[in-house]
Design a protein around this nucleic acid. Structure first.
Lengths: 199, 199
DNA sequence: GCAGGAGCTGACCGATCGGTCAATTACCGT
DNA sequence: ACGGTAATTGACCGATCGGTCAGCTCCTGC
């Protein structure tokens, strides 16, 4: 028997459908993605989609839920680990890696986190994002500092996530280079290190 | 005659409908906004919407087109004015003012610029955004510098635009303060001034 | 060889979509 | 008082939406 995977062997239909759904949700939006389109894109029928996933909303949960789990654990580690400059540097690195490894899912719940309010999985994502902002930005920070954090996180997220939108054609940058550049810019903006420059 | 406006006096129905549509497009998305919802929100019937605007797409054009015009002229001025540090500082200020004055429209075409590809008005917005990135970022810039520009522009845009998403409840910051803080952060990131620090 | 379950599908459902149209109302200059 | 135009609306259209259901094929354990 050539199969080396214990249970499913071959690619599982539910995985193909989940991936196709994720691509649709990220590129045309949840509301504008029909089950028919997702099914066509994956090579199945609409009924098959609803066989593997109870509803369109359950499909969204399956598509972006795991990425939200990762974000939550990332956030939990950071909160538990203190706010030393070293800890912040580690966090920035892990955060960039998270962005690079979950572009489609992040694109989905960042760009549509407002319009899809009410869906449980989206509420979970919004809560995590808010926790991220709160934890990395001290409560007593000045507006300018809060703005610095906001610009850094939102800018990094959006640059990676929407980069595909405006420069998809000639995007031949290696992920490693993008990673290094992004970590550099974020460190510059976020690291409090040894006292903030007066400016 | 108490009317002081030459032609319409009172609020015009088409303006109310356009504003209601803009709010819907920005908050729940173009695809998820039905003409019925927009009409209800403005206090008219769906037929009235289609009387004042030929189609849903024409309504989008009316809602965000003027803001795109502003962005285009802003970009044109900057391209024509050179890239001196002073010119860049002026541009940053005007750009932040543009963001503050066109939040809903910017939210709409930034967040949905990818999913709504194909609509002429959206193509115009995407072209303007691309031109913005190209013009402010020299062609020979390193990846790290390009990333700095991307993070700054995207971060500023998204911070203002999606601020409502995650901290709408307690958003009592005065626009003037936000403006100053944002200009400060953007200047810090973008101004090439007298030679870039080695870093 | 065959019962039975998993995987998959087409037909169908009520609701809603964007859009058309004819009819009605309100308001204007003459 | 009246004709005409702008504004507004409900009824209606075909298409598509998310979702249900019965039935089909295929594989597997016995």
């Amino acid at each position: 028997m050539p199969s080396d995977a214990p249970v499913p062997s071959r690619v599982r239909a539910s995985d193909e459908l989940r991936q196709a759904a994720l691509e649709q949700f990220a590129t045309v939006g949840f509301a504008a993605s029909s089950l028919q389109q997702i099914a066509d894109h994956a090579g199945y029928s609409k009924s098959s989609v609803l066989y593997h996933y109870a509803s369109k909303e359950a499909l969204l949960e399956a598509a972006i839920g795991p990425s939200i789990d990762l974000l939550e654990s990332l956030l939990g580690d950071f909160v538990a680990g203190g706010r030393s400059a070293a800890a912040q540097a580690v966090f920035i690195e892990r955060f960039v890696d998270f962005l690079l490894g979950n572009r489609l899912a992040v694109h989905t719940f960042v760009n549509q986190g407002q319009s899809l309010r009410g869906l449980p999985v989206i509420e979970r994502a919004n809560t995590a994002i808010r926790g991220l902002a709160d934890s990395i930005c001290a409560d007593d920070a000045s507006l300018a500092e809060q703005m610095r954090f906001g610009v850094a996180l939102a800018g990094a997220t959006y640059t990676l996530v929407a980069g595909a939108t405006f420069l998809d054609g000639d995007q031949q940058f290696a992920d490693d280079d993008v990673r290094d550049a992004l970590i550099s810019v974020l460190s510059e903006l976020l690291l409090t290190a040894d006292g903030r420059p007066t400016r």
